[in-house]
Design a protein around this nucleic acid. Structure first.
Lengths: 188, 188
DNA sequence: GTCTATAGGTGGATAGAC
DNA sequence: GTCTATCCACCTATAGAC
């Protein structure tokens, strides 16, 4: 924690989580660390580099959530846990979720593309093994994965944008119900 | 068109559609109209009022798209056309779609709430008449409506955020395919 | 590594003349 | 209704002393 660069990164991440991307300014980050804004430039080339570092660490956080799903013992349980992890991440880290999944990526995309692909690939793998096990209808795993991802993302993002006047608890139940409805069509 | 207020509103809307909400500044709008920034304050109390007017007109545009769906002759056709209209709006007015459906509404919500509710109610009505006609499984219309809305919104917003490397054409086909998959579970 | 001083930019908003 | 002049707030970033 003595490492100045780490302290800056953590401060930037905290500010980001509290107030969104716009509230991350060199001044604000510096103030929280307890230095002046110019000091930051010793550790990050410019603001964009700092924000990129914050996002990258956020993506790793997301990856950690997803990874838990691999504890499941059967393909279907791993798929179900993936949906659970996705929901948990969205509700526990809404600002991160918003930035990763609800904001157009201008300029930064090349840097983040591998992480995006890895995420999607994870879901495709979960779907593929369910199809192989005969638990899901036959079909192109990537297509089915898009359907599932879009569905859970749609639910989550409508909730986060404030479209439904749900409390978190009622939303969790609506989420489960809606995903179940989708799976009625996907299973048989 | 002689009406200065209308000219200002149109200029603001154009700038908004071209560059998103952030690019709407009093200076930029004034320049396009051909006046100075201070002149705008004769017609709009402040920037927020101007942006609110832009959003409100955007919502009416969306309403126009949806309204076309009522031309359908059967409940199911009206529901199908609603999905079509939603997709058309998203692809033809992406900046508007992003703002209405993908941006958290801080402060402005009270003003827009009625329009939000009207939109959701429209979909609930389409679902209800399909259930009544026996075309959709029995269930709470509002719940089913959320499922459908979330699904199409999820597809559209993943596309708009750049998550899938689809062209518009391949996306339209993926959209149709995914919605069909959902309806396999909803119909029977 | 961090500071002070400072340059240079964008944006919202008001006062008062015309 | 529109202008000029102006203020204020806030931002990124650099130069050079310590």
């Amino acid at each position: 924690m003595a490492d100045p660069k780490t302290r800056i990164l953590n401060a930037a991440r905290d500010i980001f989580l509290e107030g969104g991307a716009d509230s991350v300014t060199m001044r604000a980050v510096a103030e929280r660390v307890g230095v002046t804004a110019t000091a930051l430039y010793r550790h990050f080339e410019n603001k964009e580099a700092l924000v990129r570092a914050v996002m990258s660490s956020g993506f790793e956080t997301f990856g950690g959530y997803l990874h838990r799903a691999l504890r499941g013992r059967t393909p279907m349980e791993r798929l179900r846990l993936s949906g659970q992890a996705y929901l948990d991440f969205a509700l526990e880290q809404p600002e991160l979720y918003r930035t990763i999944f609800m904001t157009p990526w201008r300029g930064v995309e090349t840097k983040m593309d591998p992480q995006w692909n890895a995420t999607f690939q994870f879901l495709v793998d979960r779907v593929r093994e369910c199809i192989a096990a005969g638990e899901l209808k036959k079909g192109e795993p990537a297509d089915v994965a898009v359907t599932i991802w879009a569905h859970v993302h749609g639910l989550v993002s409508l909730y986060l944008v404030g479209a439904c006047n749900f409390t978190e608890k009622t939303f969790r139940s609506a989420y489960r119900q809606s995903v179940d409805r989708l799976f009625e069509g996907l299973t048989k």
